[in-house]
Amino acid sequence: MMYKKISTAISFAMTLTLLPAALATGSGAAAADEPLKVSWILSKAAAQADHRALDGFNSYIKENNLNWTVDVSDGKGSPATAAELLENAVQRGSSVIILSMVDMRASQASLDSASAAKIPVFTIDAGWTPGVVVDITANNFAMGAIINAYMADRLGGKGGVIAFKENSHHGVRKRGKEFDVVMGEAPGIKVLADHQIDVTNFYADSKNAMEDFITRFGDEVNGVFAGWDEPAMAAADAIKEAGLKNAFVVGIDGNTAAMKYIRDGGPFVATVAQPFEKMGSQTGQYISDIVVNGKDPDTVIPVKQVYLPTCLITAQNVPPEGELPWKACE
């Protein structure tokens, strides 16, 4: 998640005739000469993962010359704000609503409103919630197991580690649980501390916490797990500035800045790259099939939560600048 400023409402449109079809949800036909009004709710405007998924969705629209208009709003890291934006999208008469990386636990009433209005809701890496057509994500249990097993193996089964966790997002919560599982099977590794990240100020909070841990534990710190790449970068910056030589950091997401950290050979040594662009384009395909072409969701979607493949990135396979990280494993 890079620090990219956007306005809290962005609109864009591209044109082509849509195939006439009844909406699978029963909300009526998407007429050939009418645009599809898509409302997209970001978890947080500063989050690169949200923007990468949105980029994939935008590319799908452009490549297929679709007459879809997308309005983007910022959940600001707040479940309550996201729920309010979801309700607003329902009241505006959106054709489709998409939420990316949002904590959905405050949104059930708004989802019920969308269902009552027969507006289909899709989510990306938000965890499936009743009322959502499908959640497209990667397997967060698997990613947590892969990156933490890598950390334990790199340590040779011994040393001191710190975890940066965050429990409001389903995926990061699951990754943190896998840290506990892996370290529980590594008796030679000592968990020095773990920290709950303040998602509203994740970089500064993580860096401040890492600086405190360095003061407390010094050279006892050998490995650091962070639930996603930005806190990992913050921890790596603190380690580098403190001059620790035997500590490394791992993360999850495979964001652009993380690739540079790994290429540069600093403390940030590995991440699991998620195909956020593909999540966005796959959402577009599902909308075309279900909302536009009127296909039965049960014949289009295999399960309510669809997992896309990921890729462990280290110095050995980090892609050059400009290449999508997750493609390193294709």
Results as ranks from 00 to 15, higher is better:
Lys327Phe: 09
Val133Arg: 01
Ala117Pro: 02
Ala152Asn: 06
Asn167Gln: 13
Lys260Gln: 15
Val182Pro: 04
Met279Ile: 00
Ala258Asp: 06
Val191Cys: 07
Ile97Pro: 03
Pro231Asp: 01
Ala247Val: 07
Pro35Met: 10
Phe57Tyr: 15
Asp153Asn: 13
Val102Thr: 02
Arg173Ala: 12
Ser100Lys: 06
Arg216Gln: 14
Leu19Phe: 12
Trp128Gln: 11
Asp212Gly: 11
Lys304Gly: 13
Gly176Ala: 02
Asp296Gly: 10
Ala328Gln: 11
Val292Tyr: 00
Val132Pro: 03
Ala270Leu: 09
Asp198Asn: 15
Ser78Tyr: 11
Leu111Ser: 03
Ala328Cys: 10
Ala30Phe: 13
Asp74His: 10
Gly218Leu: 03
Val250Trp: 02
Glu211Arg: 04
Leu244Gly: 03
Ser11Lys: 13
Ala186Tyr: 08
Ile239Ala: 04
Arg154Glu: 14
Gly56Leu: 03
Phe268Val: 01
Glu321Trp: 09
Val90Gly: 00
Lys37Glu: 13
Val300Lys: 03
Lys44Gln: 14
Gly251Tyr: 04
Gln316Ala: 15
Asp103Ile: 03
Ala89Tyr: 07
Ile162Gly: 02
Thr15Cys: 13
Met2Ser: 14
Thr310Leu: 09
Ser78Asn: 11
Ala29Thr: 15
Ala80Gln: 15
Pro309Arg: 12
Pro275Ile: 14
Ile252Asn: 02
Leu85His: 02
Pro79Lys: 05
Leu19Gly: 14
Asp229Asn: 05
Val292Gln: 10
Ile41Ala: 04
Asp33Ser: 11
Pro187Cys: 12
Leu23Asp: 14
Phe248Trp: 05
Arg175Trp: 05
Leu99Tyr: 07
Ala186Val: 06
Ile119Glu: 04
Val182Tyr: 02
Gly77Pro: 07
Ala152Thr: 07
Pro35Cys: 05
Gly280Asp: 03
Thr129Gln: 14
Asn139Gly: 09
Asp135Pro: 05
Lys304Tyr: 08
Ile301Glu: 10
Gly294Val: 08
Val199Phe: 13
Ala163Met: 10
Gly266Cys: 02
